[in-house]
Amino acid sequence: MSARVSPREEAGALVLAVAGELDANSAPELLAEILPQITAERPTRLDLARVGFVSSAGLRALLLAYRRARLLGARITLTGIQPDVEFVMAATGFLDLFDIEERPPAPQRPAAPPPREGGRP
């Protein structure tokens, strides 16, 4: 499954809503789609409310996009991170590397992150 990006305006900010799964397959496309839309002129929010799974490569792609945007002088934040994704980002330290808006409340101690669809039980 791949990820889609839909842009929208919200109070002077560009919101890039990502939907789907972020992994080694979808990450390069995602990067290619996101980067040209980011400018230094207005703040950008990456809305991850409809991202249910981010793999190791997916997290790296997100961080690369985020940092390239910063390099361009753009203000960029993440928003809408789902609890399962947030759990993984916290455990692996990625969460500390982003500017996060609306950090979701910590879920009640999931025993482990959910298995990926179609993966091993």
């Binding site: 793999s55 190791s56 997290l59 993984v88 455990a91 692996t92 330290g93 482990a112 992150p113 990926r116």
Partner: peptide, 19 residues
């Protein structure tokens, strides 16, 4: 690793060491 099922145990251990 809490993220072992996702293959991110290396990131998780490194994050622990860094902290």
């Amino acid at each position: 690793a809490a993220t072992g099922a996702l293959g991110m145990q290396a990131d998780e251990l490194k994050t622990l060491v860094k902290a």
